[in-house]
Nucleic acid binder design. Structure first.
Length: 429
RNA sequence: GGGGAGGUACCAGAGUGGUCAAAUGGGGCAGACUGUAAAUCUGUUGGCUAAGCCUUCGGAGGUUCGAAUCCUUCCCUCCCCA
């Protein structure tokens, strides 16, 4: 497999240094991607980097993931309009653990030839003394060169943001030093990243050239955008995480299902490893009948499978079919307990005492005090007035409705919908 | 060190003694239409025991019948000059 050709048809190359083709002509090359460990889980914004490394490994090369433990303590000024919060060492280590667990499933770390590596730049930066750093690294790069970088210029000119601290200004040097470190210790001559990283990567190349006379390369991929201009990877609830405790596999699956038609054609190439003929065929089919959302379904399946595995995918699909398909409430009445819990495994659940239901409870209280389905009683009233609450698939239009045992399915469950899409299961026990 | 501007709800941003739970826009939530899409349109967007009441305009005090608005003080941010 030709790595570059593969990325090209997938639309994953934004800019590259052409000579990189020679470097990759034989298997066994090494490349790295950097990720800031700002949380103890990756989110789907990191997925492009991971995919780059997966393709790289499939092409017979050695992928290296560098966690920016040190750089995360500084904050990359790229694309930021203001300085970010600095992370403590303790947090960075904790985040490293979480990320390590996730990545170990996505890259092959065991292959003798081209097994993946996970490194943390904190390890080679923590004891690097300031004087040594400015003598070894700082003397090779002029301030003029650093100031010419687009992201720095914008911040200094005051066009964007609030001025640039010295710490942030130094960021590109620290990242450049990472590249130098990998070049020297792992014979790694290629750095990949999002297009916003171009400036940082080329500083690294420059440093390698000046410090060692060696040659190194860069490939950047386009930043993932959405057709409607909003930020990719965010939902109302925030980031879409890879950690199933932060974003359930069902929510994860739903995120991809809800991809727009335009975006789906790009995403399927970037986020799945389906081959070109398969994808071309899917796209043609999808264009003739977009309402079937073939692309979205395939996208969601492939990704949920890759991140969460077959069991979680099955639950996500079953749940989706029930909730958005023709799943009538009668279905629940005939299912056994285990099956119901299975379908609703991915749905927020609230337990309340059977006694409370037996005594009868107002719908408003049920939604707010006894569960956290809605934040306040005002909101509950508002939502009911707006026809936004369904109880067992029945529209609730009386805010004084009293819930009692008659509403329980199998004398145990109540299904609440907030809007058409948000389901909650109340379990009386 | 000197000078200036400013901190208002999720964000941006009006409001400069009562008619202010606070304009407007964005965002969010919901409804209609749909394909669980996009676009569009509509409603809503501090809380509560709800025609009423309570807590909000950086913090703390004060003036006043009455304060987001005036005074004192503290904290914070930005800009210009050195």
């Amino acid at each position: 497999m030709d790595f570059i050709a593969e990325l090209e048809w997938r639309g994953m190359i934004y800019e590259m240094i052409p000579e990189v083709k020679n470097y990759l002509s034989d298997p066994g090359a090494a490349a790295y991607v950097g990720i800031d460990p700002t949380a103890d889980s990756l989110h789907i914004g990191h997925l492009v980097s991971i995919m780059l490394l997966r393709h790289f490994q499939r092409a017979g090369h050695k992928p290296i993931l560098v966690l920016g433990g040190a750089t995360g303590m500084i904050g990359d000024p790229s694309g930021k309009s203001e300085e970010r919060n600095l992370l403590s060492e303790e947090i960075i280590r904790k985040n490293e653990e979480g990320i390590k667990k996730q990545v170990s499933r996505l890259l092959d770390f065991n292959d003798k030839q081209n097994g993946a590596l996970l490194l943390n730049n904190y390890d080679w930066m923590k004891d690097y003394r300031f004087l040594d750093f400015i003598r070894n690294v700082g003397k090779h790069i002029t301030v003029n060169y650093m100031m010419a970088k687009e992201n720095v210029k914008r911040r200094i000119s005051g066009e964007v943001g609030e001025g640039l601290s010295f710490a942030e200004f130094s960021y590109q040097l620290v990242q450049a030093n990472d590249f130098l470190h990998l070049y020297k210790n792992f014979n790694c001559k290629l750095q990949m990243g999002g297009s916003d990283q171009w400036g940082n990567i080329t500083t690294g190349i420059e440093l390698i050239r000046r410090a060692t006379g060696g040659e190194a390369y860069a490939i950047t991929c386009p930043l993932i955008t959405k057709a409607d201009g909003t930020k990719f990877g965010k939902t109302e609830k925030g980031n879409v995480w890879l950690d199933p405790d932060k974003t359930s596999p069902y929510e994860f699956y739903q995120f991809w299902i809800n991809t727009s038609d335009e975006d789906a054609e790009r995403y399927i190439k970037i986020f799945t490893e389906l081959d070109k003929p398969t994808i071309d065929e899917l796209i043609i089919k999808h264009r003739t009948a977009p309402e079937n959302r073939l692309l979205q379904k395939k996208l969601a399946e492939e990704l949920t499978m890759m991140i969460h595995g077959s069991k979680a995918l099955e639950i996500a699909k079953t749940t989706s079919e029930f909730l958005f398909g023709n799943g009538s409430i009668d279905l629940l009445k005939n299912l056994d307990l285990a099956s119901i819990l299975y379908i609703f495994a991915a749905i927020p659940q609230f337990k309340i005492s059977h006694e409370i239901i037996a005594q009868g409870i107002g719908i408003i209280d049920l939604l707010t005090n006894n569960t956290n389905i809605l934040a306040s009683k005002s909101e509950a009233r508002r939502m009911i007035a707006n026809n936004g609450i369904y109880l067992n698939k029945q529209l609730v239009n009386d805010e004084n409705l009293i819930i009692n045992e008659n509403f329980l399915i199998q004398n145990k469950f109540i299904v609440i919908q907030r809007g058409k899409k948000n389901y909650f299961l109340i379990i009386a026990e």
